[in-house]
Write a protein that binds this DNA or RNA. Structure first.
Lengths: 367, 367
DNA sequence: CACAGGCGTTGGACCGCTCCAACGCGACCG
DNA sequence: CGGTCGCGTTGGAGCGGTCCAACGCCTGTG
């Protein structure tokens, strides 16, 4: 069947295409009866206006560009979920750009600019240099960042309140009577991690505890390294009774190190994560963690972008979304003074490999 | 600066816009010298043709629709990576559709059809009813499925060779001297799981082993349930010395159950997964697993779709991509006859919670 | 009764590009 | 030397909408 055009509809309704166009853009100046008739004709003939023609005539496109990192992180998907749910309700569609590596990044941004397809740009979990984006933004293309990792920016963005989140975690541990609280950092070049670390320090300070530098494990995000460092930490006589990790995956490695030392979570050591990715509800024990409201962040960012496109002020500055502490079973009241001795970690060629125990996402509907 | 049009370029080059158009579509009938001149003008003025106008005039759009499930699975991202790398090289862009729940599914498909934006449709990790898609495909819109879970389909699709993959895993275990090999199923309503189970049975049969029905753990994909079942299995006198799981997340739960029983991986029980998701290289011990070539599957699907759009035959039928066995440290030679006794799993209100030991993705660059 | 004003409708130029029929022109042919 | 051919180029009619100036008609007013 030949695709119907606005002209056909006009003819069928006995009107000019101008009127039909007015109906399409629901102009108030068209007679209600006429409008209904036109709508009825459109519905019964299953008519949809051509996007290309509309875009050309109107001079603007119905697309939002979204740049996501090539790697697969839970958070990206969670943010996307929120973004999609908002965009779905708008006349826009999402064009997906996958940034594979930094080298291509500015050429990707250039491609987006040149194509002129996007009415706005959403950048998810961005950790690259920001100059290309800032330049683009100055060009007039609205840009909103969500969940930036790296450098801070003057671009409008939506972030979780990393500082306050960590403070809440600290408060929780302090309430449970912990005083020796260690911190396993993430990559400290990331602003979010810096903010979390500040939250840790200030949280201690507020309780009048002098932070012991020995209790800070420097960042890496690399599980084996983390296990090693935490193992060392736990071997100390004055080992911590609680550990806050800069994200959930780090917390997993921490928990594992605790086990490897013959200690128990949470009886001997409490562990708190950050993010609340899906699998954290299903670890063993389930992880107490600071939830980042990823879907809400996605929604907020999408809404912010849509408003900006529709001519709002433009530079709203970074929005902070508040986190919430999800208390599960990896934290408990601090143990009484002299506690179970940590078993020195097994080493040497003839020791059996350390055993492992896994985690599984809630219901992993993997193929 | 005013956006340049083809007319401006024509004027600047002292030619008609027809000629410039010919250059844009690199027609062979334009004089090389002319072509170079035009290209030079375009480059120096940073000209890009309007997508909307081109789409309208040509009557076809430069977009590929891609439907992904709302949930976050490693595989989706991995497949997407492959898709993106192929589409990037083509004149097409990807429009992202997120299918949140089944109810919206057919309306989503309808929206895609009606908008007429997509020149083709890529459906990633699809487990919904296929009728809407098949109808769409009959309409003339090319559709390619990647990594389908649910019902099989006559639509062109790209899948991993689940059957052969499991057989390879079985062969590996048999070579290591295992004879009592258990299988922890996934959701058996999924075709992929059925195929894997067939691979398991046939693998045993080939070695002349009569499959013991007691060694099949029925599917759920639900970690706690899996832990429970596997614990029961290991408590048996004639417990298995190896376990194949229908996916990696299941394998994690299996490993955990093994630990919980006081047994060791791989000395007492070998464990094999399926998928090779990123974190599996980083479990403790690292997981031996059957790798699904997700990025390659994405690439293949994208290429197939592009070919179909460009008028190739159309119905290539399902393509199978071969898997590869990644041997890590969760599998070892079968133990000699009388082996270490499984400790009955801890139960009761006053038993300490089972301890946990985590896994962490290789480098989890999470915020 | 002529005229102003408002409402609803309309014709048509235009958005930027494609593509086809037609055209100019030099080379080649009879 | 006129005619044919083919190459490279061109004018212009679409593609399917938008939007503005203009227009008919009906009502209210002086």
């Amino acid at each position: 069947m030949p695709k119907l055009t606005i002209r056909d509809i006009a003819q069928l309704a006995g009107l000019s295409k101008s009127t039909v166009s007015l109906v399409l853009n629901n102009s108030p100046k068209v007679d209600p009866a006429t409008r209904d008739r036109v709508l009825e004709v459109m519905r019964s003939h299953n008519y949809t206006p051509s996007t290309a023609a509309t875009a050309l005539a109107k001079g603007r496109t119905p697309f939002i560009g979204m740049i996501v990192p090539g790697l697969t992180w839970h958070m990206v998907a969670a943010v996307n979920w929120g973004v999609a749910s908002v965009i779905e309700q708008s006349p826009y569609e999402i064009i997906l750009y996958t940034s594979t590596n930094e080298k291509d990044y500015s050429s990707l941004v250039e491609r987006i600019r040149a194509s002129g397809l996007s009415a706005g740009l959403l950048v998810v979990t961005h950790d690259q240099a920001l100059d290309p984006l800032e330049k683009l933004h100055r060009t007039g293309l609205p840009v909103v960042l969500v969940n930036t990792l790296g450098t801070p920016s003057t671009l409008p963005s939506v972030q979780a309140d990393n500082y306050e989140g960590t403070r809440t975690a600290l408060r929780h541990l302090l309430d449970l009577g912990h005083t020796r609280i260690a911190c396993v950092q993430g990559l400290m070049t990331y602003v979010c991690c810096q903010e979390r670390y500040r939250g840790y320090l200030d949280g201690l300070a507020e309780a009048g505890i002098d932070p012991d530098p020995e209790l800070t494990v420097e960042g890496s995000f690399h599980p084996p390294t983390i296990r090693e460092r935490v193992t060392e930490l736990l071997a100390r006589r004055d080992r911590p009774t609680a550990i806050v990790a800069h994200n959930d995956n780090t917390a997993y490695a921490v928990m594992q190190a605790v086990i490897d030392c013959g200690l128990r979570v949470p009886q001997d050591v409490s562990v708190v994560g950050f993010d609340d990715i899906a699998s954290s509800a299903d670890t063993h024990p389930p992880l107490t963690t600071v939830r980042q409201p990823f879907p809400e962040m996605g929604k907020a960012a999408a809404r912010l972008l849509l408003e900006t496109i529709d001519g709002a002020t433009g530079d709203a500055g970074p929005a902070r979304m508040s986190t919430s502490l999800i208390v599960r079973e990896s934290t408990a009241r601090a143990a009484k003074k002299p506690h179970r001795r940590a078993r020195p970690p097994a080493v040497g060629p003839d020791t059996p490999p350390r055993t492992w125990s896994g985690l599984g996402p809630n219901v992993s509907r993997t193929s």
